[in-house]
Design a protein around this nucleic acid. Structure first.
Lengths: 214, 214
DNA sequence: ATCATTTCTTAACCGAAGTCAAGAAGTTTG
DNA sequence: CAAACTTCTTGACTTCGGTTAAGAAATGAT
């Protein structure tokens, strides 16, 4: 398994691949930002291509950046009693950050693993701080955005807690069908809160109840 | 059951009770704040005493304030299939807010109920906005605080998900023993993710395993 | 193509939570 | 005090996930 360690942010030049350049362009073209802000992003937020299996962050490591996912899928998990417990899947358009650990400079509790080839932008903590001091209005926007994300996460958790593994599975198929292309079922089982054998049974139950309706 | 509706924030004068005044004093005496900031708080953040059973926020209502709990205990729950699902207990020193719903002016998903007499400060959204414009450094502090809370909440959720109801019960006794003074066990059962009958059995199991150790 | 590895499924058995029902213990009300 | 209600416990039975073990299916390597 590949390990990225510190070289994500250090690498100077951009992957010359067309796709990455397209993404870079979209990164700096939001019409909600001023030209000055766009220039700042273009200069300070590199875009990287990551191979399947790359660990963007490892449990115990200190997080130094936030990331935005333009393409691919990243799995978040931690280890408990030698078992990997998957707690999130990030897909296109999601951001990966952890204010608490980044701000406190404490070791991360989770690992971020690319489950397929990914394209991300790298927003280092230093650049973030400089951005806030140069463009105070963006700090206000980020505060608001964080509050909304937090609120939305609480909702997600409440929905999760008040549904059965079976309901969670059906819901996941509806809301993130693309996951099933990349992610082995035993990771999805972990995410749904059951063992792989149980997910098999759940799928079996759903198959038979679906066929009995015919 | 009492209903508070909009009159929490409207009432002008302070409850003249000694305890409330003491709390008001502590509210404006933090030495991390400038005198100007303290004056602003004293003028704009009223402190209220709430009776047991008061609903500080009702499911479907639009949240207009944030609250800080100086005394008492508040239960957060929502209804699913006619059942109340308890998702949090707030105790002394906790803050109650919901950035997402407050900022979007969308109806709340949860209800906040005082499980005993409570003393809170009321921080209205309008006052919050004015505070940010008058004291920009406080917006920065709040952004950082929100990120830390968010991160800490994620941790709590992960711990919850990777433990059994029995472990959660034992953990709750250790971390929030005061809850058991105020809150009926069936609310605690809901919070732990089981039915009251199951919590009874868990308690039974723990009793017998404790006595067998003697 | 063959072999090895990873991933998924099935079956038998066990333990824990859900459900339903009854009743005990504790609290409130008149 | 007694009646009514709320809260908690217990028992019988069902359902579902965990565990173990075996094997099928899919994927990758030589």
């Amino acid at each position: 398994m590949m390990n990225l360690d510190n070289d994500v942010t250090s690498s100077g030049q951009l992957d010359p691949d067309f796709e990455v350049l397209e993404i870079m362009k979209s990164l700096v073209s939001s019409n909600r930002n001023t030209q000055e802000e766009k220039d700042f992003f273009a200069e300070n937020i590199p875009v990287k291509r990551l191979k399947k299996g790359t660990l963007l962050l490892k449990e115990g490591q200190i997080l130094k950046s936030s990331y935005h996912l333009f393409k691919g899928c990243i799995r978040e998990f931690y280890c408990k009693d030698g078992e990997e417990k998957t707690v999130a899947f990030y897909t296109v358009g999601d951001s990966l950050y952890d204010g608490g650990h980044r701000l406190n400079q404490t070791p991360s509790n989770v690992t971020w693993e690319c489950v397929c080839e990914c394209i991300i932008s790298v927003f280092s903590f230093e650049v973030e701080k400089e951005m806030y001091s140069r463009f105070p209005r963006l700090e206000s926007l980020c505060r608001i955005e964080t509050e909304k994300q937090y609120s939305s996460y609480k909702n997600t958790v409440n929905n999760y807690l008040s549904s059965s593994p079976e309901e969670r599975y059906e819901n996941l198929i509806k809301t993130k069908p693309e996951l099933f292309q990349f992610v082995p079922l035993y990771h999805i089982a972990s995410y749904l809160g059951v063992k792989p054998e149980s997910l098999s049974r759940i799928r079996g139950r759903l198959r038979s109840s679906a066929s009995s309706k015919v």
